[in-house]
Design a protein around this nucleic acid. Structure first.
Lengths: 333, 333
DNA sequence: CTGAAAGCGCTTACAG
DNA sequence: CTGAAAGCGCTTACAG
């Protein structure tokens, strides 16, 4: 009863049916003229005998791989990771409809060896970058090789197709709300400044001050807070300056900050107000709830994937897409 | 100066050199006799002209895909996610050496549609499961289709190749240490009981009691704590029972517990002692440091991948591999 | 040591 | 509407 696991080929189908491979191929692909009766006969046989064409062989014939590569950063904050994972789900869901699969590639800012390998081996038709850097090796490689790709996140490189949440507008809007509610002394606690996203947010922060006609002293901006100690020191300095509103660029920074404040017995929002980005699990159960900007990562991944397919199919697509965000005002501010 | 992006084929190489494709192929693969001079000439030309054979075409000819599939659970706790990601890095590093790539597949306990698709499309030579369930659709599918695969984590299914940290022994050892230090009333706070890993740990817990000749009342075991509320309720009950040692099956449960204890102004380790698994980022910066069992996820991924290659290459491999763990005794106990 | 030829499992002009 | 043949870019018996 058991069949040899799906090893049946188009040739066998053709012979069994007494038609040519061409006919079988046409019945499946729907391309080219074919008699309605024949088609149905073929399709029926295929269904019953559980024939599935080899995508690999089809790929060879059509010079396609039916794979896209997703470049996942090897280094990340935990809050980013779940963001990436969700984006991946979005990508995968879209790609699946097109019968494409995802080739996973892991790289760092400095080392894109695996991406290079995959590209050289010609295993993918396109690439999605889950993170961008101000100087981005992956972007340079892909542009040089003329491989279609879409970046999640902003870039300054010209001619790069990208999909992004409107980080700058989001940060600006939130900052404006904070400014109007609590006055001008907001301290920004930011992440690595080699990431484009850090700059987007910083610019939004500055935009808000400018729009309100306010001065923004250097001393209210902290970047590159990559460790708990760095965050705590920045917080100490901010509090000494009498800043009573702290805006964190990501939830990990925020969670470090919260612990620090708790240890100092500072009450939120009474003594200090806090806001953050992401709205990830990290801050899910804080008390009080933290004001944050939420982004839908799954949707982002899907949008990136959709755009990539436009590129691969030579359809037109806007170079840049900005997705909406959501500001969740909560008790912490 | 710019070359057409790597589109050069073996045919062109052969012609340019005035030899046959066969020869070129042999020079590259190292299989079959070939003159040292010829080989060098070919290799040199290839190097200079940046020729890379198409892996896809090679695959077709050899009936291989040079891909392995990694099945990533769609639902997870945050602590698991970084564990999965690290395992993936290990897998990827090993696969890369073999010039294999990773096809990412996302599935849930109930829905393995993408895995089925990939299998039907014959896009992979083998599969790694990053999680196992007591009743596991993926295992059943792969066994039926006779696709080589390795499970990360234990299964009760017979004939499944698996790699695992010794969860049971780890839990037993930690429990014994706790028993000898603080007496018999330890409460176990556990996760979803459809996961095999949950059972492994539970068994280890029970082993320890048995080994010490102690009775283990049902009331000291809580499973399926999937929400903060569930954890808090379990904690309340445990404290009422006068249990003063809490062993968490994962770091997320533990972090929920810690917040709860903090709100109740209970001091660790003075009033309550706490231990956990994973040693992930979630508990990285707690004060006091939490006793935990640490597992090396990257190593686990690598071991799983190594075993998978044994299977694919028809080499012998033990059906089951248990990796060591590390118990980190810290201030919390 | 080297090459012509068949084959991997498909697709796609080209003829009929 | 249907099929024979060439082709996608490799590998691998088989001959020489």
């Amino acid at each position: 009863m058991e069949k040899e696991s799906g090893k049946i080929t188009i040739d066998q189908v053709a012979k069994a049916l007494g038609v040519s491979k061409t006919t079988v191929s046409r019945a499946i692909s729907g391309k080219g003229r074919i008699g309605e009766a024949t088609r149905r006969r073929v399709l029926e046989y295929i269904e019953e005998n559980d024939y599935k064409p080899s995508i690999i062989a089809r790929g060879l014939a059509q010079s396609k791989t039916f794979n896209i590569c997703v470049l996942l950063p090897e280094n990340y904050h935990l809050s980013e990771l779940s963001f990436f994972q969700k984006a991946m789900v979005g990508i995968q869901q879209y790609a699946e409809q097109k019968d494409y699969d995802i080739l996973l590639c892991i790289g760092t800012e400095e080392d894109n060896g695996s991406l290079e390998r995959i590209v050289r081996n010609q295993k993918v038709d396109g690439v999605i970058l889950l993170r961008t850097y101000r100087k981005d090796q992956a972007v340079e490689l892909l542009q040089k090789k003329r491989i279609p790709f879409v970046a999640v996140g902003d870039t300054d490189y010209p001619g790069v197709y990208q999909v992004n949440h409107d980080q700058r507008a989001a940060c600006r809007e939130l900052t404006e709300k904070l400014l109007s509610g609590h006055g001008p002394s907001i301290v920004l606690l930011g992440g690595r400044d080699s990431l484009v996203i850090t700059w987007n947010r910083l610019e939004g922060f500055q935009d808000a001050y400018r729009a309100c006609g306010l001065d923004l002293p250097e001393s209210q901006i902290y970047l590159n807070l990559e460790s708990r100690e760095a965050v705590e020191q920045a917080a100490d300095e901010a509090l000494e300056q009498k800043c009573r509103v702290l805006l964190c660029m990501d939830d990990v920074i925020c969670s470090w900050l919260l612990r620090k404040l708790q240890r100092e017995h500072l009450q939120i929002p009474r003594d200090v107000r806090v806001a953050s980005f992401y709205n990830s699990w990290v801050l899910e159960n804080t008390d009080p709830a933290i004001t944050a900007i939420a982004f839908d990562a799954r949707e982002l991944g899907e949008a990136a994937c959709r755009k990539l397919f436009c590129l691969m199919e030579q359809e037109e697509a806007p170079e840049r897409t900005l997705l909406p965000y959501q500001i969740l005002l909560r008790e912490s501010t």
